[in-house]
Amino acid sequence: MWSSIDRGTRRYWKTVGRQVDLASEHAWLRAPISADPQATVADNWLATEAQRVGGRVARDPDAGLLPDIDALAGPGFDPARLHPTVRDFYEHTARWRMEAWVQWTPVFAPGGALITRLFGRRVGQLALPVRPLDTARGIDSRVETLLDADGTHRGAAWLRTARATGEYIYSGFYRATRLPGSAQPSVHVSFPMPLGTVQVFLRPEVGADGALRLVSPPGPFGADGAYVTIVEGARAWAARVPLHERFDVYPDGARLLRTDHTLALGRATALRLHYLLVPMGT
Rank of each mutant, 00 (worst) to 15 (best):
H188K: 02
L212C: 13
G181K: 04
V189S: 06
E91S: 06
W158K: 00
Y170F: 12
H92Y: 05
L179I: 09
R142P: 04
A183P: 10
P192G: 11
V102H: 01
V198I: 07
E167C: 04
P110N: 08
E91Q: 14
A164Y: 03
T116F: 03
F89Q: 01
E144P: 04
R95G: 11
T145L: 09
F119R: 01
P129Q: 00
L202G: 00
R117N: 08
P132T: 11
T105C: 03
T197L: 10
Q125E: 13
P204L: 03
A162F: 08
G166V: 10
F89V: 05
S216H: 03
G151S: 09
L114W: 13
G207W: 02
T152H: 10
I139H: 06
R137V: 11
G155M: 14
V206K: 03
I115W: 01
Y174H: 12
L146G: 07
L179H: 07
T93Y: 11
L214S: 02
R175H: 06
L202Y: 03
V102C: 06
T135Q: 05
S182W: 00
I169T: 06
T85F: 00
T165K: 13
R131Q: 14
D140L: 09
W104D: 01
V200H: 00
S216I: 00
S141A: 15
R142N: 13
W101S: 12
P129H: 00
Q184R: 06
A136C: 15
A127D: 14
S190P: 10
A164K: 10
A176D: 05
P110R: 13
H153D: 12
P106D: 08
E144G: 06
V206A: 05
G166H: 09
A162D: 05
A176F: 13
Q103M: 01
P180A: 08
E144H: 14
V102Q: 00
G210L: 10
W104R: 00
A156S: 13
M193R: 10
V187W: 09
A208T: 11
V123Y: 15
S186Q: 07
T93A: 15
R175F: 00
P106H: 07
A157L: 09
F89E: 03
D140F: 03
P84I: 01
T177K: 02
F89K: 02
Q103L: 00
W101F: 04
Y168W: 13
S186P: 08
P110H: 08
Q184H: 05
D148S: 14
F191A: 07
R131K: 15
T177Q: 14
F108L: 09
T145C: 12
V215L: 12
A176N: 04
R97E: 09
A100V: 05
L212D: 01
T93V: 07
V187P: 02
T165I: 14
T116H: 08
A94C: 08
I115F: 11
F191R: 07
I139L: 15
H92I: 15
A136L: 12
Q199G: 03
G207I: 04
G151C: 13
A136Q: 15
R178H: 06
R122Y: 14
D134E: 10
T177N: 05
V200R: 00
F108I: 13
W158R: 04
Y168D: 02
G172C: 04
P192E: 06
E205G: 03
L212F: 12
A211F: 04
M98N: 10
